[in-house]
Amino acid sequence: MTVLVLTLIVLAGSYVAGLIGSLTGLGGGVVIIPLLTLLLNVNIHYAIGASLVSVIATSSGSAAAYVKEGITNIRLGMFLEIATTIGAMAGAMLALHIQTSVIAIAFGVILIFSAFMSLRKKNEQINTQKSEWAEKFKLNSQYPTAQGKVDYGVVNIGGGFAMMAFAGVISGLLGIGSGALKVIAMDGIMRIPFKVSTTTSNFMIGVTAAASAVVYLQRGYIDPGLSMPVVLGVLLGALTGSKILVHSQSSQWLRWIFAVIVTFLASQMIYNGINHKI
């Protein structure tokens, strides 16, 4: 295959990955890595490097919009970034030492998990309970809703922090944003309103990815020729997705179709990993 043909295929595939990733809230990375490794036979290290770069682009691009709306809890994001960056650094170092087949299996498992997380019903919870540590770290805040500003409290700081460190390791190891894990930490463990969780998670993903990208860059995982169509395609796809989202409610059937596709891709990754084909 020539460079030109590969670039065009990857560009188109990345656009679709970015579009779907944005519509389902999973992020483009989870689709682009199976596309590159399974279909185009690209080495998983290059695929992870290119995906990580696209994660920074989409996260920074959409965070710019959310920060302006004032939903993002910047203090909470900063505080938890201590955990995610340490985790990401550890994950990137780990990726240098473990077999690619193990990375492929881990990727498949996280992929299936993320897909089913995206199917969950999202109930906007408002927790007014405030823990001592949240008070100390000024994490309790308020966010704008249709009914005006609403106050919320944050609990279980230790548990959330630990989960964030794990999300960081996964992000550094697999080259994805691991937004699903970040949302579990905030929405599930720390009982933060869902909208605040997702936007703050998005805000943090870029910084987390940057912490492992600096390692990947020096190790030669980020190939410019391959990363170029991936990052441009995913970003354009995500932009299109965000435009569609503004105009329509994200539909449940789309999430279901996507969950099925993702599960199929994930099982292929696991299968190839077990047979050492990746």
Partner: peptide
Amino acid sequence: VFIGGCLYLYRHGHEQVHYTDFVGV
């Protein structure tokens, strides 16, 4: 990235790709 990409494709667009084995950049 876009500008660099155009130059890269113009110069190397017809070469063969080799991303199967990891050899760094």
